[in-house]
Design a protein around this nucleic acid. Structure first.
Lengths: 132, 132
DNA sequence: ATTTAAAACAGTAATAATTACTGATTTTGA
DNA sequence: TCAAAATCAGTAATTATTACTGTTTTAAAT
C-alpha cells in the first residue's frame, strides 16, 4: 500500500473516535459509524483502525477483556479499568517520578527500556455512586 | 462448582507454570504438560488456568499480542514486553514512589483506585545481543 | 473534464483463540 | 467399597479478527 488515499469512511471512523474518551472497541466504532454510513462493513472498520494505528494517528490498546480498544489521544497517558463494569478511563495524573521511570528501570535491566504505561484498576466514579 | 477436587492435570499445569518466568500462553502450557500427560486436552488446560486464576493461585495477563499469558508469581510486580521478539519478562524493579502511586492517583480521581501495574517496553537482553 | 491505475470499499469466507458441551473417568467422603 | 460430584478427553461452537474478491472511489495525468 504505497500511497494512502483519502476515504470518507476512514475520516468518519477517526472523527467518531475523537468524540469519545472511553476507548471503544471496533464493534462500538462500527455500530456508531453505521449511523452515518449505513452499509460500511466491519472489515473496513478494522482495516482503518489498524491503518490509523500504524500511522500513529490513534492508539491501539489491550485490556483484560481480551478486546482491542482504540484511543484517538496519542499523547502518553495512563489508563484505568473498572473491575465492576469494565469501563476504561484515562488517568491524566502522572507522578513526579513518572518522567524518570524508564531510566531508573534501565539501570537495573540488561535490555533497553524505551517506554512504559501504567494501568490502574478499581471502581469507576459511576459504579461508586451506584453502589452507595 | 461447589467443592474443588484435586486433579493431577491441574497440579501438572501449576507445577509447569512455576518452572517458567516467561509467562507462557495456554498453548505453550498445553504442549509442555503433554510431555507428562500425553492425552491431556487443550480444554482442560484452559479450564484449569482460568480456575487457578480465579482462585488467585496464578495471574492471567494480557499483552499486545492479544493472547492470554499466565504467571505463577502472584506478587504484585511489573512486566516488560520486547517489541522485537514479543518476549515477556518480569521487571522486579519498583520505584520508591511506586508504593504511594495508588493514593496519589486517588487524590485526583473521582472513583476508587485499588491497584496498578506498569508495563515497560523496549528491547530484551537477547535481542540486544543479537542486533549487535 | 476524461481517463486510468491504484487504493479503498462492501460483503463474505476463513482463521485462531477461547469457551461450551457430552458422555466417560477420577476423586473423595461416607 | 460405594456413590455423588468434580474433572476429564474429545469435540463442537463461539467470538474477535483477518483475508479474499469483485466493485467503487480517489487522485493524478492527460
Amino acid at each position: 500500500m504505497a500511497v494512502i488515499k483519502y476515504s470518507r469512511q476512514r475520516k468518519a471512523i477517526k472523527d467518531f473516535l475523537m468524540t469519545r474518551k472511553d476507548h471503544p472497541t471496533a464493534e462500538t466504532v462500527y455500530l456508531n459509524v453505521r449511523k452515518t454510513y449505513p452499509n460500511i462493513s466491519l472489515g473496513t472498520v478494522y482495516r482503518n483502525l489498524t491503518l490509523l494505528s500504524d500511522m500513529g494517528e490513534i492508539q491501539k490498546l489491550h485490556f483484560k477483556d481480551g478486546l482491542d480498544h482504540f484511543d484517538a489521544d496519542t499523547r502518553p497517558h495512563n489508563h484505568f479499568l473498572c473491575t465492576e463494569c469494565g469501563a476504561v478511563l484515562d488517568i491524566d495524573f502522572q507522578s513526579d517520578n513518572d518522567f524518570h521511570l524508564d531510566e531508573q528501570a534501565n539501570s537495573v535491566f540488561d535490555g533497553k527500556i524505551t517506554g512504559h504505561i501504567t494501568y490502574f484498576q478499581g471502581i469507576c466514579p459511576d459504579c461508586c455512586i451506584n453502589s452507595v
